[in-house]
């Protein structure tokens, strides 16, 4: 099994190279970029100036001279062929230098680092809530299959699943923040956060988090809950549960002592991928609640053609994704003793 995981880790390298080459090339092929943006800004400034101080014979539309543009291209590395530029970029990444944001003019890592606490907070909170609620809910629904509780909770869960999360977000924001004023309108913390005591700080973060978290959860509840429910129901009907009861176990003990671990196997197949939660985040929900997370950062860096940030986020998220896949395999191997990766001696 060890050799299997070593192989899997080695395979990260070519996959990572493939993903980054592809995206790096794309950033070169699509129109627009930091230089075009600067030219535009300069042109706008020029136009404004022209309006304000009429008659001034400035640069106007041709805000920058060709020589200046060439210098800029050299500065951003656009003067080199794609593969050479990619090699330069990769060399820097290997020394843990993700480059400099063209939009914020600060190291990409600084930009990313600023968003990390927010994203980790929402990622971990979503993770805990998803598994903390969906797994127990799925268990209860399986045991009480076709009861009023089961039907009602299914209705709620599917309702949440059917509505786009940004609609939920707007509805929550209008209802509970704007009208009822139970929760703040947005942001991660209040403006006076630094003046609050420790406990007040926690309360402040929590009250800001309620509505965004609800919006995130509304859609993701259905999948895990129903997966858990169906998986457990399959196992409750399994013969080994009947064996356990025939041995003299009561039903409840058979559910938790025998069926539960078996029914967690399908859940485990995607558990490791949760590691990527810390760099994901819905751009729409972040936008609605004015949260400076990864979703917003990724979207804005794309719109603004801030390629170093785009590539930086890609490096982090693709690495996490690849590691997450391996972690999922580890989780499956931990829950299911029949799984023996890579050693052909498995039972069935």
């Amino acid at each position: 099994m060890t050799s299997y995981f070593v192989r899997r880790f080695l395979l990260i390298l070519p996959t990572f190279l493939g993903v980054t080459v592809l995206v790096f090339t794309l950033t070169r092929l699509v129109p627009g970029g930091p230089i075009e943006r600067m030219l535009n800004e300069a042109a706008m400034a020029g136009a404004d100036n022209a309006g304000a101080t009429s008659g001034y014979d400035g640069h106007g539309a041709g805000a920058l001279s060709d020589q200046q543009i060439e210098e800029l291209k050299a500065y951003y590395g656009f003067d080199k062929p794609v593969l050479v530029a990619y090699a330069d970029w990769l060399g820097k990444v290997l020394t843990l230098d993700l480059g400099t944001s063209t939009r914020y003019s600060e190291p990409v890592w600084e930009t990313v680092k600023g968003r990390l606490p927010i994203s980790i907070f929402y990622g971990v909170a979503t993770l805990i809530l998803t598994y903390g609620v969906c797994v127990p809910l799925g268990i209860v629904k399986a045991i009480r299959h076709k009861t009023a509780f089961d039907n009602l909770s299914s209705a709620v869960v599917f309702f949440g699943y059917a509505i786009p999360s940004y609609v939920v977000a707007i509805a929550l924001l209008t209802g509970f923040a704007a009208n009822l004023e139970w929760f703040p309108l947005g942001g991660f913390v209040s403006d006076d956060f630094d003046d609050l005591s420790g406990l007040e700080k926690a309360g402040d973060v929590a009250s800001h988090a309620v509505l965004p978290l609800l919006s995130y959860m509304a859609g993701s509840f259905a999948v895990t809950t129903l997966l858990m429910k169906n998986s457990l129901m399959d196992n409750l009907a399994a013969e080994y549960v009947r064996t356990a009861i025939a041995k003299g176990m009561n039903f409840r003990a058979a559910v938790f002592g025998h069926a539960l671990r078996n029914s967690l196997i399908p859940i485990a197949t995607s558990f490791g991928n949760n590691i990527t939660l810390i760099v994901t985040g819905s751009f729409l929900i972040e936008k609605i609640f004015n949260i400076d997370g990864f979703g917003l950062l990724g979207f804005e860096s794309l719109v603004e053609r801030d390629y170093p940030v785009v590539m930086g986020i890609l490096v982090i998220s693709s690495l996490l994704f690849l590691i997450g896949n391996i972690l999922s395999d580890v989780c499956v191997a931990l829950t299911d003793p029949r799984v023996k990766f890579g050693s052909g001696e498995s039972g069935q």
Partner: peptide, 13 residues
């Protein structure tokens, strides 16, 4: 005791 010894035992214990 049952007909199917393949499925009558808990596979993860």
């Amino acid at each position: 005791i049952f007909q199917e010894p393949m499925t009558a035992l808990n596979p993860v214990q």
